[in-house]
Simulated scan of single mutants.
Amino acid sequence: MKSVQIQNSDMPWSIAANILFPPGFDESRTYPTIVSVHPFGSCKEQTSGNVYGNALAKEGFVVITYDASYQGESGGAPRWIESPSQRVEDISHVIDYAVTLSYVDADRIGVIGVCAGGGYVINAALTEKRIKAVAAITPINLGRLFREGFSEFNPLGTLEAMSTQRTKEARGEELQVNELLPQNIETARTNGLTDRDVLEATDYYKTPRGQKPGGWTRMLFSHAQKILSWDAFAFAETLLTQPVMVVVGEKIGAFGAYRDGIEVYSRATTSKDRQIVSLENSSHYDLYDKPEAVELALNKIFPFFKMHLGKNASIQNESDYTNIK
């Protein structure tokens, strides 16, 4: 693994990233490369990197996993902004960096994203045609979630509250940083929270199971207005032309990934190869790191990426793709 800081002329801060290399990596060769995008409130050391990133690197891909702008070890202020437009732009910035690396095959770049990251990679692929294949793991359309459950089905009231808070902060008052999850499962249950996704998210992010220093599960409330008008899947029927695989779990929770995954699959009618993987005994957070669910997902993801980024694509020197069979 190599840690890097990605600087782009479009923004005054850098993106912190880890580059994961396949076994027997040889810098003189070129490799298919996958950009891995983390969930809302997460970081590169969690599921996008230490689960899916590591697994794909072991299968022969170069993988770049990174922290979103304003989050983790990446730059940007104020901290903990979740901006869908910036999150999607970050993907292009990472690809800009990737294509400058001598060992990255610029014609063989894929993306994978988990949770909100799954929505972001789909949205990025609508216009970023350097992306040749897309895998969305339990994808969430964050705009839909904010308009519904995260705003308690009161998006207009939430927008008014955000506007009021932003005015206060502009006048020098303290920033309102919202903690996205209960402190622990016991607190969640004490407060009457029983939903599968809330409890399982708390178990992942608030215990040694998934807890990492950069995975703050925080959001700056006053700067989240634009999320409520955003749609990860807008124009998918027309613009999502790349091969796309959507992986969902059938154990449904309030965050709505099963619903969102089925929706984008059904709308991706112009995709060159659209596939849906529906796992009967898996939940949203099982697909973050639970071995059985992850293995089932990877058993589909590996051949999908190998088909579209490997030897069945037009490669200049097939011997350079020893691990991509």
Rank of each mutant, 00 (worst) to 15 (best):
K2W: 02
A16H: 00
N18Y: 13
I19Y: 02
F25R: 01
D26T: 00
T33E: 14
T33C: 15
C43Q: 10
S48I: 09
A57V: 12
E59W: 04
V63D: 01
Y70I: 03
Q71D: 02
P84R: 08
Q86P: 04
D90L: 06
I91Y: 02
S92Q: 15
D96A: 14
S102M: 01
Y103D: 02
I109D: 10
V111F: 03
I112D: 13
I122F: 07
T127P: 12
R130G: 07
V134R: 10
G143W: 06
L145A: 15
R147T: 07
G149T: 10
T158F: 09
T164L: 13
E169L: 03
I185D: 07
L193Q: 12
R196N: 13
D197F: 03
V198G: 04
L199T: 00
P208H: 03
Q211Y: 04
G214K: 03
R218V: 07
Q225G: 06
S229W: 02
A232P: 04
T238R: 08
L239F: 15
V247F: 06
V247P: 12
R259N: 11
V264T: 09
V264Y: 09
Y265D: 09
S266F: 01
S278L: 07
E280K: 13
S283Y: 00
D286S: 03
Y288N: 06
A293L: 05
E295T: 15
L296I: 08
L298F: 08
F304K: 08
K306T: 10
K311N: 15
Q316H: 04
N317Q: 12
